[in-house]
Amino acid sequence: MACRECERDEFWHKLGRCRGCMLGCALIALLSGLIWRGLGADGSVPALTALLFLLGSGGLLALHLLVWSWRRLTGADRQHDEETR
């Protein structure tokens, strides 16, 4: 990834900070949802595989958005920006 946060090793430091990562997660979740609906959204193996991919990517997106909103509400984002300057 291109940003400073994505190059760090710690997983928890990456969540909710990189807009590019969040947009990528949203795009992957949208595409997997479309694939799941396109496969019929039934109990077939390809549809269930697409559903699991949708749940995984949607869960990661939800986690990004949850941490992002928590950082905005508590001001942790501003504190982190001041520490890294």
Rank of each mutant, 00 (worst) to 15 (best):
G43Q: 13
I28Y: 08
L52C: 14
G38I: 09
E82W: 04
M22K: 02
V67Q: 01
L27Y: 11
L30A: 12
G33W: 05
C3E: 08
R4P: 15
L54T: 06
C25E: 08
L39F: 12
G40F: 07
L63F: 10
L52Q: 08
A2E: 11
C25R: 01
A41H: 13
E82V: 12
V67F: 08
A62V: 08
L31V: 15
G38Y: 03
V45R: 13
L51C: 06
K14L: 03
L15K: 00
R71H: 11
S44M: 04
G20W: 03
G59M: 02
A29C: 15
I28W: 10
G38V: 08
R4A: 13
W68P: 00
G33D: 04
M1L: 05
I28D: 04
G43C: 09
C18W: 00
C21Q: 03
L39M: 09
G24C: 06
H80M: 10
L54I: 04
V45W: 11
M1D: 09
I35L: 15
R17G: 01
L52Y: 12
F53V: 13
A26W: 00
L66E: 13
C6Y: 02
V45Y: 07
R78F: 05
Q79H: 11
D81P: 10
G24Y: 05
G20T: 01
R8T: 12
K14M: 05
R71W: 05
R37W: 15
L51V: 04
V45N: 11
L15W: 01
I28S: 09
G56V: 12
K14G: 01
L55N: 04
S57E: 02
V67S: 01
E10Y: 09
L66Y: 15
D77H: 08
T74P: 05
D9E: 15
R8P: 00
C6S: 07
K14A: 01
L31M: 12
L39G: 04
E10Q: 15
E10H: 14
E7M: 13
G33P: 02
C6W: 01
G40Q: 07
L30N: 02
F53N: 10
H13I: 06
W68M: 07
M1V: 04
L51E: 03
L73N: 04
E10T: 12
C6H: 03
D9G: 14
L51I: 05
C21W: 00
R19G: 10
A62L: 14
W68N: 03
H13W: 15
T84E: 13
L65T: 03
L52M: 11
A47H: 08
P46L: 09
G20H: 03
L52R: 06
E10L: 14
S57Y: 02
C6K: 02
L27V: 15
R8M: 12
T84S: 09
L65R: 04
G58M: 02
V45A: 14
L60A: 14
E10G: 09
G24F: 07
H64S: 01
T74S: 13
A76V: 04
T74F: 07
L61D: 00
L34G: 15
R72L: 15
L39I: 12
R19P: 02
A29I: 02
L65D: 03
L60W: 03
G58V: 03
W68G: 00
R85P: 05
G33L: 10
R72F: 10
R71F: 05
I35W: 00
P46G: 06
E10M: 09
V45T: 13
G38F: 05
G59K: 02
